[in-house]
Amino acid sequence: MKKKIKILRLIWITFGLCFFLWIVFSYQTKGVDEAVLESNSVIQVENTSDIISFTPKKGFQKVFIFFPGAMVAADAYAPLCLKIAENGYKSIIIKMPWRLPSYGYNKPKEMNLFEDNTKEYILAGHSKGGMMAAKFVYENPKLIDKLILLGTTHPRDFDLSKSAIPIMKIYGSNDGVADTKAINQNRPKLPPSTKYVLIKGGNHSQFGYYGSQLGDNEASISREEQQKIILNSILTFIK
């Protein structure tokens, strides 16, 4: 009997380890050109242990701060954030401890990223990063000027319906992780003025540049097309 228990325990440990390794591999950045993370004549790129930032060399008045999804590498969102910077806005991706936004969502405040009160601050997040972005606004209502939620059903456990700042939620019709039904159920947690953008054919994984996510559905549009819609929606909302 003890031998069988040991065998079963070994099987479960092996299964758990394989599952963890699959997640780590699947959520790695894919399809991102190395040049995206290099400075050029227009954008200064800084890549540290805490952030990846894209700063327009001609100056800027607005700062776009991004929270990655859980377990997703920060540079999976670098192409999007670079394009935002190329349109004249400083763009910062926050690197979360252990890639878990639940433990790092206060990093922008701890790093004094809001110290310049002449700037406008836009906070965005994907999936669990969107949840923590919403939570940050809930806990710090005067620090953020606009909130953007990407591929997330949140806020779910707290209420932002009285928030005075503009909020936009972008979601995909083929998203198997943050599905449309759950998003609609949580609409009362956001202000009536919230702007909703539905990406027809878009899924969860294509909000970034990484592999297939557990529970997601297949997209019926390309990653490039979904990224283009996301970028244009964000730029319109920021302006």
Rank of each mutant, 00 (worst) to 15 (best):
N174Y: 03
I234Q: 07
V32C: 10
L21M: 13
P101D: 00
I183T: 09
P155I: 10
G129I: 02
V197H: 05
G129S: 04
I199T: 06
N40S: 08
Y105R: 01
L82C: 02
H154Q: 14
G88M: 06
N106S: 10
S193P: 03
D33N: 15
K6H: 13
M132N: 10
N184R: 04
A178L: 12
I221C: 10
Q226H: 03
K57I: 13
A85M: 01
P79N: 08
P56Q: 04
L82F: 02
I23F: 08
D216W: 07
S39L: 13
M71P: 00
M168D: 05
Y105S: 03
S39T: 14
S39P: 13
K181Q: 15
I7F: 14
K4W: 14
K6L: 15
I167Y: 02
E115D: 14
D116A: 04
L10W: 12
I183V: 15
G125Y: 09
A76H: 11
M131C: 00
I234R: 02
L8Q: 01
A133H: 06
K128R: 11
F207C: 04
L150M: 07
V36F: 03
Q226R: 01
T236W: 07
M111K: 08
E139A: 10
G151P: 05
G130A: 06
C81P: 09
P188F: 02
L235M: 11
L100S: 12
N87Y: 11
M132K: 11
I92H: 07
Y27M: 13
I144V: 15
M96F: 02
L235A: 08
K109L: 14
I122M: 07
D175L: 13
L214Q: 12
Y27Q: 12
L231R: 05
K2R: 10
I92S: 06
T29F: 10
N87F: 08
I221Q: 04
E139M: 11
N117T: 13
T48P: 02
L37W: 15
G16T: 09
L17K: 02
F114C: 04
T152E: 04
V42L: 12
K142I: 10
F114K: 09
R187K: 15
D33F: 13
N112V: 00
Q226K: 00
A134N: 00
V63G: 11
Q213A: 13
F60D: 03
P56Y: 03
A78H: 14
I23Q: 12
L147N: 00
R9P: 00
T152D: 05
F207A: 02
K142G: 02
F20V: 15
